[in-house]
Design a protein around this nucleic acid. Structure first.
Lengths: 225, 225
DNA sequence: CCAAAAGTGTTCCGTCTACACCCATGG
DNA sequence: CCATGGGTGTAGACGGAACACTTTTGG
């Protein structure tokens, strides 16, 4: 080790992934029973150590890929957590990342293979170490950003109905929204496109399917729901 | 070292402090010439390594105390920066913290002793490594939060005039605000108290001095400017 | 034929914005 | 007496919130 800063102490750095999904009308969180000591058997976020030649985002993406089989997820840093004894095993500073996935894209066998479960956010149990705090911060971030960043589409299939979209907003914000007002606002957003397709699964009458148009969005990436 | 996670690599972790002040009608940033290799002589934020027995907040507070002689500053985590070669010397993951100080409380001899300068934010030079990115993120945070968190008072003396307060808002948001509208909104906020005192320094007529009432705020810590 | 979800407009109220003049005082 | 910054109110525009009924169709 020939570093410039040799005299200073080094610490383990990990990433922990807060993976949100959406099903029915509930926000879900992907957690598992911890499979190593200390804390074996406790509910926990899924994480991993940051490699010597790996940047934080790469580490988070690696862990997410391992976990979901999915690349290019929506992912945002939640923050660094560095209390001395946050990990009972040894000092570990962890950087939390929040990812949003569409549950339909998710290969359930991977979930089972890793011993993971989707839990409703409102039923979240006590998690290992400071993981509850990480989840809390992540939700706060989603709430603050959902009206100014196109988050919500990451939780839905490519084609979605307005009712589904509204349910996502309601689940993230934790409050009911008036249907007519919601749809009025959506109509003004030009990167949410109505398609000719109709979804007949969730209702007898059928509902128009919409799509997030990334190109239109990137031309004017400002909106306010 | 008898850790549970012994096989994983450890890295140096530092904190970098983004210190904002306010003077006249400008936001200022405290930076200095880097006094060690690599990068000696480049403009840089002030930072320090995180000790083995020190949590991130403590490290940031230690560095800020060293720098300003002040405790209990308003301080928020900006985020973790972990690109592999972000530091040309050796791998260092850095957690950036943003602090707001009242320039009047600041002992200028400490500034000189550390070779630091206040620069206007708009004249910010190229900084060492990814420090410009840190500052950018910090400003974004301030802008998003200034209307829902009582930030602004940290940049002012205990007693301040409404014009001073407005200048802080204008500097942070980077836009002019209508004086009458601003004062109308301030009047509705009950934790901003008018005192009987009058400031005769900045104007001939004299301006009423106001005060942030922490107790009133803590009873109802929600507002919206 | 009925249950279940989709779809659709209007009114009201409160909030934000634009805007210009008088006041007090030190020098 | 005048230059400087302090202080004040109103009208019009706009956006958000409340609110209920009709449509379609599978079972």
């Amino acid at each position: 080790m020939t570093g410039f800063y040799g005299e200073h102490s080094k610490v383990l750095v990990s990433v922990d992934c807060i993976v949100f999904g959406f099903e029915g009308d509930k926000l879900k969180l992907l957690i598992g029973r911890r499979q190593m000591d200390p804390g074996r058997g406790e509910w926990s976020l899924y994480g991993g150590f940051v490699g010597a030649k790996e940047c934080l985002e790469d580490a988070a993406n690696r862990v997410l890929l391992e976990l979901t089989g999915l690349k290019k997820l929506y992912m945002r840093q939640v923050g660094a957590f560095g209390a001395i004894d946050r990990d009972p095993g040894e000092r570990v500073i962890s950087v939390a990342y929040c990812a949003l996935i569409n549950v339909n894209d998710y290969d359930d066998s991977l979930r089972i293979q890793h011993g993971l479960e989707w839990v409703n956010l409102e039923d979240m149990p006590k998690l290992y170490s400071d993981h509850n705090e990480m989840v809390g911060k992540a939700i706060g971030m989603l709430r603050r950003r959902i009206n100014t960043e196109p988050l919500s589409f990451n939780l839905l299939p490519d084609l979605f109905t307005l009712t589904q979209l509204q349910k996502v907003y309601e689940a993230v914000l934790g409050e009911e929204i008036d249907k007519r007002n919601f749809r009025k606002r959506i109509k003004q957003i030009d990167f949410i496109e109505k398609t000719e397709l109709i979804d007949k699964l969730t209702s007898k009458r059928g509902a128009a399917l919409y799509r997030f148009n990334k190109k239109v969005y990137s031309q004017d990436p400002t909106f306010k729901l």
